[in-house]
């Protein structure tokens, strides 16, 4: 990046006239100090590590834990699957630092959530644990992305918190809307309506993919 441009632009440093007595005391003193910086050549560069961002990782594991706990009340099977998933997620974030391990862990947690729902968990708990699972997924992925693009030494708190808050807000709104519809209908369970929701979801996911 150094430019070949040798435009005669004498730097503001007022040195050039000191050549007459440069060999005397003053010049010598300066020179010594500059030599010392020259020989001090071991580059004490800061170390750079790219571990997954700690805050997001911690939040992700916390969300995972919440998901596992809220999926547990109905059946011990959900708890078992969930704990495995949680272990995978935590190991992925903190031990192996592997996106894949964390992703598979989150997926397992979600399997536990669905099993819990099928086996009779309450509506509210199933919804909460699903939200917690999706948040765990999002925060875990964000932790890796922040860790890779920035570094462990960077202060990433503000960026991470804003991201987590935005994700949480979206999920909360979705829950509120869903429950509003649910209670307006008042347990009438129009299966056709839900079928349409599913159709809409599939088509929307296609549109996102293409």
């Amino acid at each position: 990046m150094s430019t070949a441009n040798t435009k005669a632009n004498p730097s503001p440093d007022p040195e050039p006239n000191s050549n007459d007595d440069g060999a005397n005391g003053g010049g010598g003193g300066n020179g010594n100090s500059s030599t010392e910086t020259d020989i001090q050549d071991v580059l004490e560069a800061v170390t750079v590590t790219h571990e997954p961002a700690r805050l997001s990782s911690g939040l992700a594991v916390g969300c995972g834990l919440l998901a596992v706990l809220t999926s547990a009340p109905a059946t011990i099977l959900a708890l078992l699957i969930g704990v495995f998933g949680l272990a995978g997620l935590a190991a992925g974030q903190f031990v192996f630092q592997s996106r894949r391990a964390a992703g598979v862990g989150t997926a397992l947690i979600f399997v536990g959530v669905v099993v819990g729902g099928v086996l009779g968990n309450s509506e509210v708990l199933v919804t909460v644990s699903t939200l917690a699972t999706v948040l765990a997924f999002d925060l875990s992925q964000n932790a890796f992305s922040v860790g890779a693009q920035l570094s462990s030494a960077t202060d990433t708190t503000r960026g991470e918190i804003i991201h987590a808050a935005a994700s949480f807000f979206v999920g909360s709104v979705a829950i509120v809307v869903a429950f509003a519809i649910y209670f307006v209908v008042g347990g009438g369970q129009p299966i056709a309506a839900l079928a349409f929701v599913l159709l809409a979801a599939i088509i929307l996911s296609w549109s996102v993919r293409s």
Partner: peptide, 24 residues
């Protein structure tokens, strides 16, 4: 979540499914 909810006529899972849709 939606699929499992429909197969088992489970309103909780169907509600949970909306979260995934919302994030999509």
């Amino acid at each position: 979540a939606l699929g499992a909810g429909i197969l088992t006529f489970n309103p909780g899972l169907m509600l949970a499914g909306t979260i995934g849709v919302a994030y999509t």
